[in-house]
C-alpha cells in the first residue's frame, strides 16, 4: 500500500520507472480479471491496455485514495462493462442469451497466453450471466469485498451475494462437468 502510494507519487512527477513497476506488478492480475469478465481474449487485452493508457493519461493529477490494485481492478471492471454495454447496443440479443463464442485462434500479437486450465475457467465463466460473472471474478480473482462490488454494481450487498452464489454454483458444476467428461 505504502509502496503503491510512493509509486503513484513518482508517476505523478513523470517517473518512467514507477510506471514500469506498476505495470509489471499489476499487469497479469488485471489481464486475468479482464479475461474472466470478457468473452473475447482480444477484448480483455484491449480493456487492460486501455486502463493502463487512461491511467498514464490521468497520472499527472491522479491521487490514490484507496489501494492501487482496487482502483485498477475497478477500472478494468468498468471498462469490461462498457465493452459489454457497447456490444449490447449493437445487437438485439442479450449477450447472456447467446452461446459464448470464444476464439481459439492464436494471433501473433496476442498478449495473454491461455493454458488449458485457464481456458477451461474462461470457457466456464463465459456461460455465466454478466452480473454473476462480475461478482465471481471480482471477488475471487480481484479480491474485492462484496460491499465494494455492490457499490460498483450499484446494488445491495445481498443482491451481490446472491449473484455470487448463483454464479459460483453454476461455475462449479460446469468445471466439475469438465472433469467428469
Amino acid at each position: 500500500m505504502l509502496e503503491d502510494k510512493l509509486l503513484v507519487w513518482k508517476l505523478r512527477r513523470g517517473s518512467k520507472d514507477a510506471l514500469r513497476v506498476i505495470y509489471e506488478k499489476y499487469r497479469d492480475d488485471l489481464l486475468r480479471i479482464a479475461a474472466g469478465l470478457l468473452k473475447e481474449k482480444s477484448q480483455a487485452e484491449d480493456a487492460v491496455h486501455d486502463v493502463f493508457a487512461a491511467f498514464v493519461s490521468a497520472s499527472s493529477n491522479f491521487t490514490l485514495t484507496g489501494s492501487l490494485r482496487g482502483y485498477l481492478t475497478t477500472c478494468v471492471a468498468n471498462k469490461a462493462r462498457n465493452i459489454n454495454r457497447t456490444k449490447l447496443r449493437q445487437g438485439t440479443v442479450s449477450l447472456d442469451e447467446v452461446e459464448p463464442v470464444v476464439s481459439r485462434l492464436r494471433r501473433p500479437d496476442e498478449w495473454i497466453i491461455y493454458d488449458e486450465q485457464f481456458q477451461q475457467i474462461c470457457d466456464a465463466m463465459a456461460h455465466l450471466p454478466y452480473e454473476q460473472r462480475e461478482a465471481v471474478v471480482l471477488h475471487i480473482q480481484g479480491a474485492m469485498k462484496f460491499k465494494e462490488i455492490a457499490k460498483l454494481q450499484e446494488t445491495s450487498v445481498k443482491t451481490v451475494l446472491s449473484r455470487y452464489r448463483y454464479g459460483f454454483n453454476k461455475l462449479r458444476s460446469l468445471l466439475n462437468e469438465e472433469v467428469t467428461k
Binding site: 495473454i112 497466453i113 486450465q117 485457464f118 475471487i140
Partner: peptide, 9 residues
C-alpha cells in the same frame, strides 16, 4: 480460479 496463473507474451 484464484490461483490459476496466466502467461503473457
Amino acid at each position: 480460479i484464484k490461483n490459476t496463473k496466466i502467461k503473457t507474451n
